[in-house]
Design a protein around this nucleic acid. Structure first.
Lengths: 228, 228, 228, 228
DNA sequence: CATGAATGAGTTTTCATTCAT
DNA sequence: CATGAATGAAAACTCATTCAT
């Protein structure tokens, strides 16, 4: 499992091994329950070397979060081609997302659970990543509303939605819901044997796209006795 | 904040005070960072008494999770009337859910974050609650498919979906997505000042219902080059 | 050597045992070389109890310094009767001082060496005690100058010396020198077998008193080519 | 501050740079708190080189003590001309002493505080230096007793005092007191802005010389009820 | 010579947990 | 019942020291 105990490696390599061990341990045990002893052993080095290179448990955790957040956003980014229609972009993004989180469950645990559960130095780190993704999704929703599903209400929208019926707050909520659903499905797919990234993506696509579509077309869900 | 230090109370009352203190402390500090000292002090009792009644930190945490899970499901259950149409049931359930999580943020933090972040004894506890909710939502989806959006494909479905085109796995994924979205929106609503339970519920309703509807009507999202 | 391992003692007693162990260990090993493990063992308790009662190594050290500084000044104070002539007061004070430091060499090491060698939280603590002693000696010098060794220059001095020929700074220097000599002699007496407190006091009395006397009488040491 | 990082210097020079760094660091941080890392960096060399040249932290500290002890005794020795009268020799010695300690406060801290505070390998080192100074002062006292302040009691003394009324032990105590006073005044002068070496020397001269004088002349301090 | 890589052994400190009263 | 007294075990972190290059 852990790196083979090899002596005398350049610092950059050792650091990556340490981050590997950190992600694995933090992801499985949780931030607080993970001990530096265990991480060092898994990395195949002594504890002082971990401290020499990464300074502290907090810094190590932050470095893990940062590396994995970068890797995830990079995976999603490189899976999407921006010259495609919005729904295709969303599909590609989701597929890349579920593929990545499925391949690196520990990293996903670090980002999705551990980082958010342990207060401010860390939550902010992952919040930045999340905002980037939410912004990407928001953008897709807006673009979809204008290009793919043209409707008088939205016809002359610019980059930011100004339509009074679909205000910023609501779009933010939609993006939040979509991203939240994706995050949950990622955990579910990881925990449910036999669920592939493609299936997860398709499920979410089905769930979300038409709902968004109806919404854009001015046919929101409504019920008597309920007012927004 | 903590219970007033009063002497000689019946065991049941003392236990509830301890659980109150536990939920508050676990919710704010996290499971590991919460100390039994702090919890005992907040509960207004001595530490040995906490051990006498609750046995251990693990048991205390489990008891907190169980109580709050019960309270949440109970809140949702009692918000829903099963003689209503499916969409109304979903709406009522979401409203009850967001109202409850908004009123007890520490309890929600315990259930949503802490319990899932700290391994097996606890994750299972909250998973049980989650499954109940997912089952409820699944049921609503199935009922909606048959009653509210009748379609030949689903006409003769019983309590469990057996239609080959909408297999269990897919419905489970949809329910998972919906619940996940709800969970994320709960955290988002708690963290975003000015977002009410009603707004959160409406956002999710809009997002989900029409998507589900289209799906039920046999018009899933599709893209050339993508096959389920 | 250490306290006999007895169980269940009241806090006040245990704290004194811990301070005893602290003084002994800090005095012999030095502040930094002393380990909390060693102190706890010598006190006959477990380490957590030391931390429960004394909070930290720093606080423990400070408590040791404070207790021993108080004990020393108290010993000197109670050895002096203020209704006696100045030289007798000085003699009694020195005797009490050397007796005390001779009986508690570890405590003296803590005050004289360790506390001054380890920076600000501690140096200030012992500086306060020292200032009290220096003030007492200064007072004796001034009183002696007026009462016991009357001289025109000093005749009408009040509590504080205002004579331009014997300014505050110089008296402070003299007191400093006397106290410094006493401190050194205490260490010397402790290190030289066979030197009693009485002998140390007599040596210093002989050394200092006549010098102060001549000084008061306006016959300071002078050498050609040397100007103040 | 630290030595400029230059390559390829002869060993003797490098060693001096290391000792410089050691004295500065030990003097400021204390022996234990000083880290070899810091010393190596301040010296502008790598840590292994420090070990190659100086072997260990203990040896480095010892070397620092030894160099500075030598420098101090050398400074005092070269400030005194032995063809001068005893009081002049004492004056010159004190002046040289206070001047040197004032100019090298870190070195003085090493000798006066750190070396004596950290147990046997080091205390012995500085004790040797101290003994040399005490011997020099003792010699001055004896010479003064015979030459400058002749008195029947001491008339036929040789290099070592044999008079039963002024035995070795007592002279040693006097020298110890004088040296101790000097040491204290050195620290006091370093810590009190505006006190010059000359002022410190004059204060001590005034304090001590006449006392010694009276003593030599057979008029020691005496009080009824007190017997040596 | 000089250094980046590496560590064994130790430090202070905390915490869940139990007993005697 | 209730609590002050007490601890075993383990955590994060540091440091003097060495080796391979």
């Amino acid at each position: 499992m852990g790196a083979v105990k090899t002596k005398r490696m350049p610092r950059a390599v050792r650091e990556q091994q340490m981050l590997d061990a950190g992600v694995e341990t933090f992801g499985r045990r949780g931030y607080m329950a993970a001990s530096m002893d265990e991480i060092a052993e898994l990395a195949g080095v002594s504890k002082p070397l971990v401290y020499l290179y990464l300074n502290s448990k907090e810094d190590l955790f932050t470095a893990c979060i940062r590396r994995e957040a970068l890797a995830l956003t990079e995976a999603v980014r490189s899976g999407v081609r921006t010259d495609q229609p919005a729904d295709r972009q969303l599909w590609d993004g989701l597929l890349a997302f579920f593929t990545h989180t499925g391949q690196k469950p520990d990293a996903w645990s670090v980002l999705h659970l551990q980082a958010r559960t342990h207060g401010e130095p860390f939550a902010a780190e992952v919040a930045a990543m999340r905002e980037e993704i939410v912004a990407f999704v928001t953008q897709l929703i807006v673009v979809a509303a204008r290009d793919a599903l043209p409707h008088p209400r939205l016809r002359s929208c610019g980059g930011t939605p100004i339509d009074p019926d679909l205000p910023e707050r609501e779009v933010a909520g939609l993006a939040e819901a979509l991203v939240g659903a994706a995050e949950s499905l990622a955990a579910w797919a990881n925990a449910t044997p036999g669920v592939t990234a493609k299936q997860a993506a398709l499920t979410l696509m089905n769930f979300a796209w038409a709902g968004l579509g109806n919404l854009m077309e001015g046919r929101p869900w409504a019920l008597q006795g309920v007012s927004g």
